[in-house]
Design a binder for these strands. Sequence first.
DNA 1: GAATATAGTTGCTCACGGCAACCTTCTAGG
DNA 2: CCTAGAAGGTTGCCGTGAGCAACTATATTC
Lengths: 160, 160
Amino acid sequence: MSRTESLVALEREIGVLLRRVRRVIAARAAMVHPDLQPAAYLMLAYLVEMGPQRSSDIAERFEIDKGAVSRQVQHVVDLALVERTPDPADRRASILAVTADARRRFEEVTQQRRRILDERLGDWDDAELAVFADQMVRYNASLEPGQPVASAQPDGGVRG
Amino acid sequence: MSRTESLVALEREIGVLLRRVRRVIAARAAMVHPDLQPAAYLMLAYLVEMGPQRSSDIAERFEIDKGAVSRQVQHVVDLALVERTPDPADRRASILAVTADARRRFEEVTQQRRRILDERLGDWDDAELAVFADQMVRYNASLEPGQPVASAQPDGGVRG
DNA sequence: GAATATAGTTGCTCACGGCAACCTTCTAGG
DNA sequence: CCTAGAAGGTTGCCGTGAGCAACTATATTC
């Protein structure tokens, strides 16, 4: 594949993935809690993995409106999946933390789901999967708007 | 990275990508036509690349409801970006084709946009990009619901 | 201490997809 | 043929989701 062909294919497949993934996420969200909204599931997953965060951190990370985050936070708080504690260092802010119960439920679902995913990706060997995951991280990083384009970077070595 | 770590990272990054990509797609859509809706842009891109298709093909490919496709088709037809011609072989169906004007505009935008993407991915060499694009294709294919999971395949060539 | 920036909330709007009902046409079985 | 059911599309209704803007409260800066 030429570079151009790669770029074309990449964009096409991201488009496909984008639309398909909705269903999958919705199914997972329901497994964690019957009333959990799909988008909020993603937020929850982020909190589970990254530990307590502020709303603004999430908005920044996902590059979505803080209003949207605010509503989703309210949603998961209502479901008792997340707790808001005031930030002692800044009284405007709150720290969001996944409740123990939610974490437990989340991990259960994750394990079960990971078995399925692992099966579906059965013909990928570990190294391939590692490369792919790494490239996804790198791809996201490359597209970060704050990030200067690669050619403008002094040292370019974003990641190892 | 262990296999599990790879899977975790993969899912997290897909979640991030999923939410970020909205903005990007919206910006591109606007470049093609100021009134073009983001989702319809993806459909248009698919038609440009794959040639004339039926609505049902698109619904199947993207795994979304045919009603949603119907509305998006109507949208791009209204914008004169796509033409509907009755399928001679099946009078229920229509063939969707990108208009010459739309194709021209689309290609212009694509080239311009690809330059930007190419810059942003400047620190990826061609081979890496090819691998990544290939893996995206493969990943999507792996997750196709019609697709049997690897472990259920008769051939059994599953995984180490 | 006033101007300004930042964290979050809320109202409004539109984009988007799922579901179901419906129409039309095509296909199978009697 | 004719009838039953499947398939291609359209439409109405609804829930989810994000952007924008206005607003409150607290922090920061000069």
